[in-house]
Amino acid sequence: MDTQLDLWEVFVQSKPGQSYKHAGSVHASDKQMALQNARDVYTRRGEASGLWVVRAADIAASSLSDHDMLFDPANDKIYRHPTFYQVPAGAKNI
């Protein structure tokens, strides 16, 4: 029998304005408990200005086996990088 509560993923914002980053996970029965557990587990030393918790079952994730196929379109397009372009000698601030 599964005696564990649901798994929640925890995202921590370390300073106001910054992106929320994944920190880890906690077990909890509801939103409120998940937030409290996340606070106790991941922000004991003032690491956070904000917390998000998301039920792990609600997250759609890419799978490792699809990795090559999924990200392939980005690999052969080096022209998306600024360094691909020739900047005329002497041109500044570009």
Partner: peptide, 27 residues
């Protein structure tokens, strides 16, 4: 406003290619 600022960080990173490709055409 946080979400606006974060979108801008992402956009600025990508704009650099846009400006350079334009400048390359002009040059």
């Amino acid at each position: 406003y946080g979400p606006y600022a974060r979108a801008m960080v992402r956009i600025c990173k990508e704009e650099s290619f846009h400006q350079r490709q334009g400048y390359e055409i002009m040059a």
